[in-house]
Design a protein around this nucleic acid. Structure first.
Lengths: 151, 151
DNA sequence: ACACAAGGGTTCCCTCAGGGAACGGAGTGC
DNA sequence: GCACTCCGTTCCCTGAGGGAACCCTTGTGT
């Protein structure tokens, strides 16, 4: 039997997991986000198996999250850069960072801080409502069936 | 050799993945969030192997994300409920939903919609800056070394 | 009294994916 | 010609996921 396929479920969480749910994928995305765009760099930074890294990169490119771009003709060298789709996924990473900082950082505090360009302050992300702009948490919501609901 | 341990890395993303990064864990969390709190319910809803579900629940309880609560003495019956730590993790799910709705929903549209209690409107989460309140995306940030930085 | 069902797991076996290391190939520098 | 770098691919081994069967406790129908 195959491992379960998340991509075909009628659930946006499952479909998002289909793209970045495999082990290492979010960390690869993080590396590309912070500027480690080459195979060798990512492999050494994460200590990931070369085999798995090659698989993940191929899948992330196939899903339109990363783009494989040639940055040198001779010798042929490639780097991986974020697409628009991939850049928006990084917002998800920021939310993971926020939760990890709050609940797993321990005594030492967060390993990395984030300075917001708009205000110049060290801050973190907070989920807000796209309509009224007020804070919006999982407890503030009612779920309503949507158009793409499964039969 | 062991699989790589994410929990010991000096990275809040990796440490968050250590808690909900395993296959199925986010979907289990979603089920508990929407009110499917019993082993049998979750197993049938997800189609997950009973073995894996038992492992995941044990780990989520061990990490303080879920709590195993007895809701019937005779016969002994248990349900899984979100802790504060787990409830905050659900905010992460909402961000996954948002990305999945935007990039993977296709023609049919989102399978589920969310109504915000505060304003009563159907909306979605948007990351904002905790300091200035303006929208905050991955491209609007500078990274600064924090106190818990690795040596 | 007895069979049967339900909830909540545990155990067993099989396959497949991750880890590690070795190999390869295109190009460049000496 | 030889070493070196970047970017993978191939090999084998182990361990994790899938599926089905089994187990234990209590409740229920007859």
């Amino acid at each position: 039997m195959q491992r379960t396929q998340f991509g075909t479920m009628a659930c946006s969480i499952a479909r998002t997991l289909d793209v970045i749910g495999e082990p290492w994928s979010p960390l690869i995305l993080r590396d590309v986000y912070v500027g480690m765009t080459r195979f060798e760099q990512i492999q050494q930074d994460l200590g990931i198996s070369r085999k798995v890294l090659a698989e993940r990169l191929k899948r992330l490119v196939g899903n339109g999250v990363l783009e494989r771009r040639e940055y040198s003709d001779r010798p042929p060298r490639h780097e991986y850069v974020l697409t628009a789709k991939g850049t928006e996924l990084c917002d998800l990473l920021l939310v993971m960072v926020r939760w990890g900082d709050r609940w797993t950082a321990g005594e030492a505090g967060p390993p990395v801080l984030y300075r917001h360009h708009a205000c110049g302050e060290i801050s973190h992300v907070e989920p807000h409502c796209s309509v009224c702009g007020e804070p919006m948490h999982a407890t503030d919501l009612d779920l309503v069936p949507g158009p793409g609901q499964a039969v």
